[in-house]
Every structure is written in structure tokens, then in C-alpha cells.
């Protein structure tokens, strides 16, 4: 049984989506509850810049990956037994 390496992008994608939802909720709270001061603007800007840096570095690190590389999971009888019985 084998899967393409791209399958590991699925849980990563879920993490990214949840991240953006929670981040948007935080920004909404700051705007809605009159916390729109220089401090909160600066912190939000730093947060967005940091997010962009993490995204860019991730993109650079996985840029040359062949996502079609198969991940094979075999349950053959010739594989060593994990248990002595």
C-alpha cells in the first residue's frame, strides 16, 4: 500500500486553516473592542510579518520536494516480528 508524499500536506493544510481562523478572530477582537491603538497596530503588524516569514521559509524549504514520492506501508510476513510470540 503506498501514498504520495503530498498526503502529509493535508494535516499541515488543516493546521494552516485553523491558524488563520484563530488569527482573524484575534484581530477582530482588537478592532471590535476599541483596542486600535499604536501598540496593537504595531503588534498586529509584527505578527503578520512573522507569519509571512514562517510561510516564506517553509515554502523555500519544501520548494524542491518531489511530492509524488511514494510512501509505502507494507505488512509482509517476512518483516521482523515485534513481539516474541
Amino acid at each position: 500500500m503506498s501514498f504520495p508524499l503530498a498526503i502529509i500536506l493535508v494535516p499541515y493544510g488543516v493546521v494552516v486553516v485553523v491558524f488563520f481562523i484563530v488569527a482573524l478572530l484575534n484581530v477582530y477582537h482588537l478592532i471590535h473592542y476599541s483596542a486600535t491603538s499604536k501598540t496593537s497596530f504595531a503588534f498586529t503588524f509584527v505578527f503578520l510579518a512573522g507569519t509571512a516569514i514562517i510561510a516564506f521559509l517553509t515554502w523555500q524549504a519544501v520548494g524542491g520536494v518531489d511530492w509524488q514520492t511514494p510512501i509505502s506501508i507494507s505488512l509482509s510476513s517476512s518483516s521482523p516480528k515485534l513481539l516474541p510470540f
Binding site: I8, L9, Y12, V15, V16, F19, V22, A23, N26, F43, T44, F47, G50, T51, I54, L57, T58, A61, V62
Partner: peptide, 15 residues
């Protein structure tokens, strides 16, 4: 990807 997800979450936790 694991490292990226970890950093995104820690960064979000800080925010």
C-alpha cells in the same frame, strides 16, 4: 512541515 506547524502555533499563541 512539522517544524513550520509548530512555529505557526507558537507565534499565534504569542499573539
Amino acid at each position: 512541515l512539522l517544524g513550520s506547524a509548530y512555529y505557526l502555533w507558537i507565534w499565534l499563541f504569542l499573539f
